[in-house]
Design a protein around this nucleic acid. Structure first.
Length: 504
RNA sequence: CGGGGUGUAGCUCAGCCUGGCUAGAGCGCCUGGUUUGGGACCAGGAAGUCGCAGGUUCGAAUCCUGUCACCCCGACCA
């Protein structure tokens, strides 16, 4: 069996990431350039993310719908910023038919050129606002709160599994409102949902706030984001919520009659998170043993490993394991588990040694492992091992089987909280204030992390810093230091500190 | 698009420089047996048009030409 260890974080962080994705069975590169295959274990994480997020969207009044994958090329051009922002990474459909050539396969039928070429959606604002035109006539049609779960394509030059792929899965909310204030409130509200999800489900602390002008979404008035720190201290944009103003309603002429009988363009928002979150989850918690999945999103939350040398021992430990699994599954459903039964798996693979099985489940990130061997059966007990403390220190021996379900649940909750606390402590320890350019460039390299620095607020300075230091403004953090100062590069007056970091 | 590199078994790769007999290893897989509380072992076995197309040669994985694909660095990237 494969006894090889994964590359350590210290030795090669990006190889470590690839090893985790590979060995935990989360995804692999497909034969299609830039496109990944999300494998069952990885997709199961996405399904849990979807389930939790979808419930949060519904709880805030949204409904799901589905819009086309293909968008007429001309639509993209209707909103100028968007055309500029996305033109370079769109896949284009030019034909609608192939010709079979006997013995030679197929070729594009030159007769079948589309009159208007279609682009594969890189995001759906244009097709959706084109549709909203027909849906919105009166202020009574507003707000319109729609979300869609979909795939999108952005033809990236360089890809990394989950973090940046040519095709990825996401959700995109697209809302229409009667007033700017309503739309801005929605933009904020959904950022709050993302923050809640990131922190309470993924156990991933995030900074929240607007993006700089240079980093905002093409077509937005402004973009709010949640920004996380990975274990290599680089930043990951984990979710964005955009206030679009009337840019799209004007581009697609979506007007409604207000209570005074006047026609007005609607106000828009859009917001999204993607399978990139899985990359964030991996890089926030995992260790050199493999994936560490936060209990609320773990596809398998508890694995029970019966063990034994003799057939009779195996039978007895398997019986005890199955019984415990049954009792765990029958526990009352809780919000903590998204009202699902606890995901328990009994590993009856006696063909492999216990050590091998333990390592495999650790690689897969299962938060709690229950071991039941002959010694445990003899005393009606079991051993509990927690994933966030691999090895002996995370083991509790001699837990009576009767008490095990309660202990397991408590342990899952404890691990969820511990992962967040650990990630937050790490992030907080790696946020540094810097006050000069010299300090900026030095601290960016060592110790690295998020740099809170003054910036004069201009696009030119932002571009210059990114060019010189390869660090970008990640966000203008809510609740950050708002005392004025002097720009770290130009010395010009600065209204407040912003977050700089190297980013994924 | 520029620079560099790689295509040999499911995976990772050796062999190529200096052409030669039946193309190899490790891992994985299959069979049988011994094992099992932190990555077990033994024996046997299946598995490759050597990326593709030409060329040179008595003979090509190996040399030459062309071609395709992929990877890395750069450019690009809400």
């Amino acid at each position: 069996m494969a006894g090889e260890k994964i590359t350590s974080r210290a030795a090669d962080y990006s190889q470590w990431y690839l090893d985790i994705v590979n060995r935990a069975g989360l995804a692999e590169n497909s034969s299609v350039r830039g496109c990944m295959v999300i494998k069952p274990h990885g997709y199961a994480i996405w399904e849990r993310m979807q389930r939790a997020l979808d419930r949060m969207f519904k709880d805030t009044g949204h409904v799901n719908a589905y819009f086309p994958l293909f968008i007429p090329k001309s639509y993209l051009a209707k909103e100028e910023q968007m055309a500029e922002g996305f033109a370079k990474e769109c896949a284009v459909v030019t034909h609608y038919r192939l010709k079979a050539i006997p013995g030679k396969g197929v070729e594009v039928d030159p007769e079948a050129r589309l009159e208007e070429e279609l682009i594969v959606r890189p995001t759906s604002e244009t097709i959706i606002w084109n549709t909203y035109k027909n849906w919105i006539q009166s202020y009574r049609d507003l707000p319109l709160l729609v979300n869609q779960w979909a795939n999108v394509v952005r033809w990236e030059m360089r890809t990394r599994l989950f973090l940046r792929t040519a095709e990825f899965l996401w959700q995109e909310g697209h809302t229409a409102h009667a007033t700017a204030a309503d739309a801005e409130e929605e933009t904020r509200r959904m950022l709050g949902v993302y923050r809640d999800f990131a922190e309470n489900w993924m156990a991933m602390p995030v900074l929240c706030g607007p993006k700089s002008e240079g980093q905002k979404f093409p077509g937005a008035e402004y973009t709010l984001c949640i920004e996380a720190m990975m274990q290599d201290k680089k930043a990951l944009q984990a979710g964005t919520s955009h206030y679009l103003g009337q840019n799209f309603s004007k581009a697609f002429d979506v007007r409604f009659q207000n209570q005074q009988g006047q026609l007005e363009h609607a106000y828009a928002t859009s917001w999204g998170v993607s399978t990139r979150l899985i990359g964030g989850l991996i890089m926030t918690h995992s260790d050199d043993q493999g994936l560490v999945a936060p209990p609320r999103l773990a596809p398998v939350q508890v694995v029970i490993c019966p063990m034994g040398k003799e057939a009779s021992e195996r039978e007895a430990s398997t019986r005890a394991a199955r019984e415990l699994a049954g009792r765990l599954r029958e526990l009352p459903r809780e919000d903590f588990f998204d009202y699902e039964p606890v995901a328990v798996r009994v590993d009856e693979d006696f063909h492999n040694s216990p050590g091998f099985r333990f390592n495999e489940w650790e690689l897969k990130g299962v938060p709690v492992r229950v071991e039941i061997g002959p010694k445990d059966v003899a005393q009606n007990a079991c051993v509990l091992a927690r994933r966030d403390m691999p090895g002996k220190e995370g083991k509790q021996m001699g837990i009576p089987l009767d008490a095990a379900p309660g202990k397991v649940i408590a342990l899952l909750k404890e691990i969820q909280a511990a992962l967040f606390a650990k990630a937050k402590a790490f992030r907080d320890a790696n946020i540094h204030e810097v006050n000069s350019w010299d300090e900026f460039t030095k601290k960016l390299e060592e110790p690295g992390g998020f740099l809170m620095a003054h910036w004069d607020g201009t696009r030119e300075t932002e571009d210059r810093i990114s060019e010189l230091a390869k660090a970008t403004i990640r966000c203008i953090p809510d609740g950050g230091d708002t005392a004025p100062g002097k720009c770290v590069l130009t010395g010009n007056p600065s209204a407040r500190r912003v977050v700089f970091a190297k980013a994924y």
